[in-house]
Write a protein that binds this DNA or RNA. Structure first.
Length: 411
RNA sequence: CGGGGUGUUGUGUAACGGUAGCACGAACGCUUUGGGAGCGUUUAGUCCGAGUUCGAAUCUCGGCACCCCGACCA
């Protein structure tokens, strides 16, 4: 990508009146644009990151048999009446058609996937299975906050699993928990993300949240100093001792929820009468689970966890580009060499943003730091004199000269 | 939803009730080219509506928007 053509603008002034780092940096670096409170546009840079996050999640969901599909955002009121959530779920967006018909804007999709499963599931032979989607969700939050960390419209992966027995469900649930841990590891936030015992809301007694430690978070979790088991504050209130090892010595941390998995039991299969005929010829309700990850929130969380005073420091796995190629001088020799390098890198499928603009070096470097691409490769007369380019990793302070022919071995 | 705060060119900010100014950005020209460079010219603003006043960005009332705290939170 030529930076001169990229649809973005950076801003060196701090964003006024916001106190979350990710909101400030993502806005100033040209990743997102706020349309209104709790609603954001993802600009090309931000969208590239979102796609990286999406692909990591997709790959991991497929690894546990999840089949991808796409369910409607616009949903019939009757389904929500059936589960008693039309009037009780305060975050539910309701819209009216030009007639008088009312719809829900999907905040989640149990009300859709369960009746859909009813058309596919008749026998124990049809179970188990799991399906997932990556889609924009709508939740009428009373108070949006912290940039893209808590919004009214956000991208979410939701997977639903269906089982004939509780035992089968439990095995799958644990498998998902492991896959979730792997996903956060791939995002580069594995070490600060804790599987956390939490309340199950309206579905179940307990659920498991995945909480990433950050000051920008709105949750408080307690981590057992003995066994590292983590519980949400709401659980701690009821159980002063660690549910796992009974130790009562905890570390209290602020965190943000980047995923949540729930045992649904028969909470949705019963209202929608989703049942199957078992081996013994009796009809039984299907056991369900659901598993969510907010992609846009993850994006913000990674920035919260990985930045410095100059800007964002993307982990390689989710960076919009791997290499930020910067041409210092405008003379034909340097321009030609840089352009050649740009094309060569692309040929080798290395994602590169090429700063081909006529700007001062200082401005280019400052902007590069703000955008946060993992490798900065600088080409100038000075480096070309020794057939080299200068390479600096965004996460490191040191720079090194690398022969042009050896460059791709670095990545 | 309860409470608090703030709305001034694209962005960040200043202006006692009395000429709306500064920096960045953008545009043009010249210079500059290893950390947001220099000089000159130009561009563009008081959230909306009422009221008080000789006079309102400034005071009052209403509305709208955004931010923060709390509550809520698949």
């Amino acid at each position: 990508m030529l930076q001169s053509k990229l649809f973005y603008k950076t801003n060196k002034n701090k964003t006024a009146g916001v106190d979350s780092v990710s909101h400030d940096l993502l806005t100033r670096a040209g990743y997102v644009d706020q349309l209104m409170s709790g609603v954001y546009s993802f600009l090309p840079l931000g969208f590239l990151v979102l796609k990286k996050i999406e692909n990591i999640i997709r790959k991991n969901m497929q690894s546990v048999g999840g089949q991808e599909l796409l369910l409607p955002v616009l949903q019939p009121k009757e389904n929500w009446i059936k589960t008693n959530r039309w009037d009780t779920l305060d975050i539910l967006f309701k819209v009216k058609s030009s007639g008088d018909k009312e719809y829900a804007m999907g905040p989640t999709h149990e009300e859709i996937i369960t009746p859909l499963a009813k058309k596919m599931v008749f026998s124990y032979r049809d179970l188990p299975f799991s399906v997932f989607q990556i889609q924009t969700k709508f939740r009428d939050e009373l108070r949006a906050k912290s940039g893209i960390l808590r919004t009214r419209e956000f991208l979410m992966k939701d997977l639903y699993s269906f089982h004939s027995t509780q035992a089968d469900f439990e095995v799958y649930y644990e498998k998902l928990a492991k896959v979730y841990a792997n996903i956060y590891k791939e995002f580069g936030i594995g070490k600060i993300t804790y599987r956390t015992m939490a309340s199950g809301g309206s579905f179940s007694k307990y659920s498991d949240e995945f909480q990433t430690l950050t000051e920008a978070g709105e949750d408080i979790i307690f981590i057992c100093k003995k066994c590292s088991f983590a519980v949400n504050k709401e659980i701690k209130v009821e159980n002063p001792a660690c549910p796992k090892c009974q130790n009562a010595d905890f570390e209290e941390k602020k965190s943000i929820e980047v995923g949540n998995i729930f045992p649904l039991g028969t909470g949705f299969s019963k209202p929608f009468d989703l049942k199957f005929t078992d081996k013994d010829a009796t009809e039984k309700p299907v056991i369900m689970g659901c598993y969510g990850i907010g992609l846009s929130r993850v994006l913000g969380t990674i920035v919260e966890a990985s930045h410095d005073d100059k800007g964002i420091v993307w982990p390689k796995s989710v960076a919009p580009f791997l290499v930020h190629l910067i041409q210092i001088e405008q003379n034909p020799k340097v321009a030609k060499a840089t352009k050649k390098l740009y094309l060569d890198l692309q040929k080798q499928n290395i994602e590169v943003l090429y700063d081909d603009r006529q700007k001062n070096p200082g401005e280019k470097f400052a902007e590069s730091d703000l955008i946060g691409i993992p490798y900065r490769v600088v080409v100038s007369e000075r480096t070309l004199a020794v057939n080299s380019v200068e390479v600096k990793e965004r996460s490191k302070a040191s720079v090194k000269l690398v022969k042009i022919k050896d460059l791709t071995k670095l990545f």
